[in-house]
Simulated scan of single mutants.
Amino acid sequence: MITDAPAPAAPLHYTAFSTDPAGGNPAGVVLDATSLDASAMLATAADLGYSETAFLTAPPEGLDAEPGRGFTVRYFSPQAEVPFCGHATIATAIALADRIGPGDLTFATLAGTIPITVTRSPAGHLLATLTTVEPHTAPIEDADVTEALAALGWPAADLDPAFPPRVAYAGARHLVLGAATRERLADLAYDFERLKALMLRLDLVTVQLVWREAADGTTFHVRNPFPVGGVVEDPATGAAAAAFGAYARELALVPGDAVLTLHQGADMGRPGTLTVTLTEGDPRIRVSGTGTEIPA
């Protein structure tokens, strides 16, 4: 763990995918959770109220990491533990870089080992890039798509036929649905309990709602209902962005070598930008974003 300063008694507050504390997705970060069991972590996350809080403890034996830069990380929403959370990973990496400097980090998570690199931009902002576990996609039953649309209040005609519904995974499972228009994406008012029940049955973490700008084919606007975490909507969702990158590549919606720009949170008043990098020959997905501490 970090040894040059005592860990804070309370979680740190960081936002990911924005340099503005009022933008992006806030996350709690507990740099030393050694004394906390799972119930205490869940209670802390619930008290904080962010979509996720990350809890760090010592790395497992044998983790391939630089000395002092490897950690075990667990992620809790206000209602449940999740196997992996992208925005809390970015936030945690930047919180660590603020204390031990930029460089490489390695997180042991329930989803697998996640390497992260933190650099500093020419403008002086910290930028974190995570590399996912190997992703995949899976089909979803037509009846489940019908139920998802009913919970969302979306007619089937509001789907973009270029984006067939799939479940995509890059550390956590997300249902991907393509919106035919930006107006459809902007109008989000869904049945919280109905969608939550479907997601629990299908073991989904969020629903990734996507609309593609026509200009260049690699710019998207996304939204993420997150009722299973007790949150109506996630402002910026790194795990879902990674899963969507795998989905878009597998369905040949983008080139095998591509950099995707995802805009999220604008409809909530917390705009953020997620960069998803696909590399030919490497199945893993890279998600990058800035972040900053939220003043107390």
Rank of each mutant, 00 (worst) to 15 (best):
M1W: 02
M1T: 05
L12T: 03
H13M: 02
H13I: 01
P21K: 11
A22T: 14
P26I: 02
A27Y: 08
T34E: 08
D37I: 10
A38G: 10
A38Q: 15
T44A: 12
A46H: 13
G49Y: 08
Y50A: 01
T53M: 01
L56Y: 00
T57V: 12
G62N: 10
L63W: 04
D64M: 04
R69A: 02
F76N: 07
F76L: 09
F76D: 07
A80L: 12
A80I: 14
V82R: 08
C85L: 04
G86L: 06
A91C: 09
T92H: 00
I94P: 11
L96S: 04
R99S: 06
R99Q: 14
G101S: 03
D104R: 15
D104G: 06
T106L: 06
A108F: 05
A108T: 03
V118Q: 08
S121M: 10
S121F: 03
S121A: 15
A123M: 05
G124W: 06
L126K: 08
A128E: 08
L130N: 05
T132D: 10
E134I: 04
H136Q: 13
T137I: 15
A148C: 11
L152F: 15
G153R: 14
G153P: 11
L159W: 13
R166F: 07
V167P: 06
V167S: 05
A168Y: 13
A170Q: 11
A170S: 14
A172D: 15
A172Q: 12
L177Q: 04
G178I: 10
T181E: 13
A186Y: 09
D187M: 13
E193C: 00
D203S: 12
R212N: 10
A215T: 15
T219G: 03
N224P: 04
P225G: 01
V232M: 09
A240Y: 00
A241T: 05
A252Y: 11
V254E: 12
L262R: 02
L262G: 01
H263Q: 11
Q264A: 04
R270A: 03
P271S: 00
G272E: 02
L274C: 02
E280C: 03
E280Y: 04
R284Q: 14
R286Q: 15
R286W: 08
R286F: 06
V287T: 09
E293A: 15
I294Y: 01
P295T: 03
